[in-house]
C-alpha cells in the first residue's frame, strides 16, 4: 500500500501539488488521469523518489520514502520515466539485465538470468535481444525499458505515460500485459495515462487530478462519468458503455466546442478536392 499524506510541491514559485492525501491499494492497476499540467507526473515522480520531497510524507509498503535508502526502495518499486530515449548503445538483453542490478549489484545469479529471460519473453523481446537500442524503433525501445522495469521484480511498478511512442496495437498489448501483471502475478501498477479510454478499458482504480488536486477517485464506473470528465477537461464529454465498462466518445458533441477557423466555402472545398 502506498500512503501519501499532506503532499505539497512547488517548482520555483509555482505550486504544482496542493496538500494531497491519498491511499493506493495493492494488487490493482491504478491509472492517474487528468489534463496537461494537472500534476500527475510530478505526483508519480515524487512517489518514485525522482524528485526531492518538499513537504508531506510518502510511505510505500511501510517504508518511509524520506528515511529509507534508495537501494532498499529499488527492491520495493520499479520506475519507468517519460524519457526512455537514450544515446547509450546497449543491447536489449543488457538493458533488461540491468533491471536485476538492485538484486545482485554486478554478480548475476541463476535466478537473475531466469528473471531476465522471463521479462524478455513476456514483452516479446526475445527475437530482439541482441539488437542495439539505437537500432530499433522507439516503440521497441519503450518495451525494452518496460521489460527492464518488470525484471526488477518489485511489487510496485510506477510508469509515467508508458503509452508514449506506442501505436494502437502496442498500446493495447501493453495495457493487457499490465492488467495481467496485476491479475495473474499480483503486482501493483500505478501509471499515468493520457488516453482516458485505455484507463477505462483496463484500470481497476482511477485517480483524476486537476490543478494539483485529486478531483475524483475510485472504480472506473464512478470516476469516468460525464459530469466528472467534462469538469476535469473543461470540455463537454459524452460517456457510453461497452463490455460493461465506460467508453469515452471523442467525436460526440463536437459542434459544441466551436471552431476557431472559419468554415471553408463550397468553392474552396471543390478546389481542394
Amino acid at each position: 500500500m502506498i500512503r501519501i499524506n499532506g503532499l505539497t510541491h512547488r517548482i520555483g514559485a509555482t505550486p504544482i501539488l496542493h496538500d494531497i492525501d491519498l491511499t493506493l491499494p495493492r494488487g490493482k492497476l491504478i491509472a492517474l488521469i487528468g489534463p496537461n499540467g494537472a500534476g500527475k507526473s510530478t505526483l508519480l515522480r515524487l512517489v518514485a523518489r525522482l524528485e526531492p520531497l518538499q513537504a508531506g510524507r510518502i510511505e510505500i509498503d511501510g517504508l518511509d520514502l524520506a528515511t529509507t535508502g534508495t537501494e532498499r526502495l529499488a527492491l520495493a518499486m520499479a520506475v519507468m520515466g517519460q524519457q526512455t530515449h537514450v544515446a547509450s548503445r546497449l543491447r536489449v538483453a543488457e538493458l533488461v539485465g540491468f533491471g536485476r542490478w538492485p538484486h545482485h549489484h554486478g554478480r548475476p545469479r541463476a535466478a537473475d538470468r531466469e528473471a531476465v529471460e522471463q521479462a524478455l519473453d513476456a514483452f516479446g523481446l526475445t527475437p530482439l535481444r541482441h539488437r542495439f537500442l539505437d537500432e530499433i524503433s522507439g516503440g521497441q525501445a519503450q518495451r525494452a525499458h518496460l521489460a527492464m522495469t518488470f525484471a526488477q521484480g518489485t511489487d510496485w511498478l510506477l510508469l509515467d505515460e508508458p503509452l508514449n511512442n506506442l501505436d494502437m496495437a502496442h498500446s493495447r498489448t501493453l495495457m493487457a500485459r499490465l492488467a495481467d501483471l496485476v491479475g495473474a502475478r499480483g503486482r501493483s501498477v500505478l501509471t499515468v495515462v493520457h488516453e482516458v479510454n485505455y484507463a477505462a478499458a483496463w484500470a481497476d482504480h482511477i485517480i483524476a487530478m486537476k490543478d494539483g488536486r485529486i478531483v475524483a477517485e475510485g472504480a472506473p464506473e464512478t470516476v469516468l462519468t460525464e459530469p466528472v470528465l467534462s469538469a476535469l477537461y473543461d470540455t463537454p464529454i459524452e460517456v457510453s458503455r461497452h463490455d460493461d465498462r465506460p467508453l469515452v466518445l471523442h467525436h460526440h458533441w463536437h459542434d459544441q466546442l466551436g471552431s476557431p477557423f472559419p468554415k471553408p466555402s463550397d468553392d474552396t472545398l471543390r478546389v481542394l478536392h
Binding site: 525522482l50 534508495t70 540491468f98 542490478w101
Partner: peptide
Amino acid sequence: ADRFAILSLGDGVAIGLGLS
C-alpha cells in the same frame, strides 16, 4: 563499470535501480 553504464541511461533509470 556497471554503475557508469547505468548512469548513462539517465538519472531516472539510475535512481530507479537504487543507484546513488
